[in-house]
């Protein structure tokens, strides 16, 4: 029987040291996709399903539908429940005391080893497929075509509250003073439209738990945080299919100061 002679001198090395970064990434991506796929059926899945949140069906969006495409990344472990974001939001956007545009949820896991309390900021997810906009009979709720923010034209709101019912994230409330439903608009009216770069909550957050930016810009911090595979990124209630623009990731170690405070755009 003939065997090919093994050319030991010219054998390609197959040890892990030689695997290219690209190959590693592809492999991880595949693993992530599979996990995401199996978790996909679960409501409130917390497994990374990055591809689901983009307007495009590929893993990472080739192109975002809006320019700028405002998004927020919430780094859960960093939130310390100081509630400065809530105070800033109330003040900046004249939110009455009975309502809220953003809130911090508290979760206690008594059986956990070590840390038992966790905090989770929530706000309007500015969905790419917003159920509230579809429900509104008078187009008072609409998706701003310039920046992807779900906004409300107060004078058109008839107060039927169908949008509040439609929202899976409890992001809307009826504002008696405005006689209209009110919600987070990423501070568009109060700040972004006046030239500021950050939302009030992101600007005051002392730990950098809220990172705000333009996900359509590859140089933006939000883009960089979402377009990576080392850390899990997830969205709330992915099974509903709303394609949110607020992303969540775990971060327990403080980030570099520069990233934490986004000082260049404050």
């Amino acid at each position: 029987m003939d065997f090919n002679k093994i050319d030991l001198d010219n054998l390609k090395e197959e040890s892990l040291d030689n695997v290219s970064g690209l190959e590693r990434r592809n492999f991880l991506k595949m693993g992530l996709m599979i996990t995401g796929l199996f978790a996909g059926g679960k409501i409130l899945s917390v497994v990374s399903k990055v591809d689901e949140v983009f307007a495009s069906t590929v893993n990472f969006a080739e192109e975002y539908p809006y320019k700028p495409h405002y998004s927020m990344v919430i780094r859960e472990g960093l939130c310390i429940d100081c509630q400065r974001c809530m105070v800033a939001c109330h003040k900046t956007n004249n939110v009455p005391e009975y309502g809220w545009r953003t809130k911090i949820l508290e979760k206690i896991t008594p059986d956990a080893i070590g840390r038992k309390r966790g905090f989770m900021p929530i706000l309007c997810n500015q969905c790419n497929n917003p159920p509230c906009v579809r429900a509104c009979p008078t187009k008072a709720s609409y998706k701003d075509q310039r920046n992807g923010i779900v906004r409300i034209e107060s004078k058109k709101c008839i107060g039927c509250k169908a949008c509040m019912l439609a929202c899976p994230y409890d992001a809307r409330y009826f504002n008696e003073e405005k006689h209209a439903v009110d919600k987070c608009d990423f501070c568009y009216e109060s700040r972004l439209s006046k030239g500021k770069k950050l939302t009030a909550c992101a600007a005051v957050c002392p730990t950098g738990a809220r990172i705000f930016g333009d996900i359509s810009d590859p140089n933006n911090v939000v883009y960089k945080m979402v377009h990576q595979i080392e850390r899990e990124v997830w969205v709330l209630r992915p099974a509903v299919g709303t394609k949110p623009n607020v992303f969540y990731m775990k971060a327990t170690n403080p980030s570099p100061w520069a990233l934490r405070r986004q000082p260049d755009i404050r």
């Binding site: 579809r134 429900a135 009979p137 008078t138 187009k139 058109k156 709101c157 008839i158 107060g159 039927c160």
Partner: peptide, 27 residues
């Protein structure tokens, strides 16, 4: 008495209809 602004409804339902809304079609 449930709709907060019934008078706005009479105006905006006509001049700013959202054809994707079941609410609009129902009304």
């Amino acid at each position: 008495f449930d709709i907060e602004n019934p008078f706005r409804m009479a105006v905006w339902n006509v001049i700013s209809p959202n054809f994707a809304s079941n609410m609009w079609w129902m009304g």
